[in-house]
Design a binder for these strands. Structure first.
Lengths: 195, 195
DNA sequence: ATAGGATGCAAGTACACACTTACATTCAGT
DNA sequence: ACTGAATGTAAGTGTGTACTTGCATCCTAT
């Protein structure tokens, strides 16, 4: 059995993530998951008890670690445009790394409220971090005097919008590549909050 | 049978839209759709042939009519901030009216490529409209000299971000109401592209 | 060399689902 | 009052699914 070096549990999880994000929970049958994982169907039940157990394990696997904050805090320069661009890029990198999970979240949130919770944690944490940053920038007189919460939410919205657009619509709407779009957004946004 | 004045077909479609957007296509059984519609299950097959036929009908029902453009074109004043705010509000109003369809799109796009097509039409058409507007504003010297396509995409991203955030995360992230967020976004964006 | 744990394999159960058929009932238009 | 179309009712078929059981096989650690 040299399918890969990954453990059986991991292979099952990977397969489930792929199938559930592609076709949805209901359509991702245990049989198909087992097949893709290169594992016997019963093995799934021995590992996770029942089908729902797989989703639970997926949620735990993706539970939010504060990866983003650390990167940001270390590299902030208090040059508005540089910082926002860094932020946008880090955000997109992170979101793409959990893309499958986000897509699963969109599909299955109704049936799995735990996912909603977990997904909402991401913007919430990021909002806090951004608000701190903008507050400090205000103290330094580098951005306009305005409630920092809606500013933060707007900046998140723009980045989230670009992410979803890239993840779901691809090149169907515009041929411009994402890096350029981020650059433009950041330029506009920076000008918009510069005194 | 005075359940409502709507035709049987419409009642079935409404029920299907509700259930599919809530629980997904696979989990929305013909039985449950019939029950919610107050209709016998066989009636569904007599009207739509098979289950997939229901989804096809839903897609046709929501196919994009250029509602947005007309409203916009009539009310444009070439005052940047006023126009952008009008635009944001109209966009949100329209998106909320097709919210269920958008959510279905997120769930079922993989299995129903037709939906992807239909959904991508919306931002594409809106982008065209926005680009025209921004080009005219450049001609009038009221916004900065910059490629209008990424400007348009960025503005769409911000509005789309707010919409998804409202539709899926609700008040989990911020208590600020959407109207205020739109106002802030528009203010920032307007300043950002004003010469 | 052997024991124990993880996995495979084969078969099966119970159930829900999409979909069909045949017949009865309602109801609007003539 | 009669007809015909739309709908309801009842019963069923076939298939796929989640999940179980019993036993064989492999691998690893002692």
């Amino acid at each position: 059995m040299l399918l890969s070096t990954k453990s059986t549990t991991e292979r099952i999880l990977d397969a489930a993530i792929e199938l559930v994000s592609e076709k949805g929970y209901a359509a991702a049958t245990t049989k198909s998951i087992a097949e893709l994982a290169g594992v016997n169907e019963v093995t799934i039940f021995r590992h996770f008890g029942n089908k729902r157990g797989i989703l639970k394990a997926i949620i735990e696997k993706f539970s939010y670690g504060p990866i983003l904050q650390k990167t940001i805090q270390l590299e902030v320069s208090y040059e508005l445009q540089d910082d926002l661009l860094l932020f946008s890029k880090e955000y997109l990198r992170y979101m793409l790394s959990i893309k499958d999970f986000v897509l699963i979240g969109f599909r299955e949130a109704g049936s799995f409220p735990e996912i909603d919770e977990e997904i909402a944690n991401v913007p919430r944490a990021i909002k806090e971090e951004l608000m701190k940053y903008f507050t400090e920038m205000q103290r330094r007189g580098k951005i306009i005097d305005m409630d920092v919460e809606p500013i933060s939410m707007s900046f998140i919205a723009i980045n989230f919008g670009h992410f979803i657009s890239a993840a779901r619509l691809g090149n169907n709407v515009t041929a411009i590549d994402l890096a350029e779009l981020l650059q433009t957004s950041v330029t506009i946004f920076s000008r918009g909050i510069t005194p």
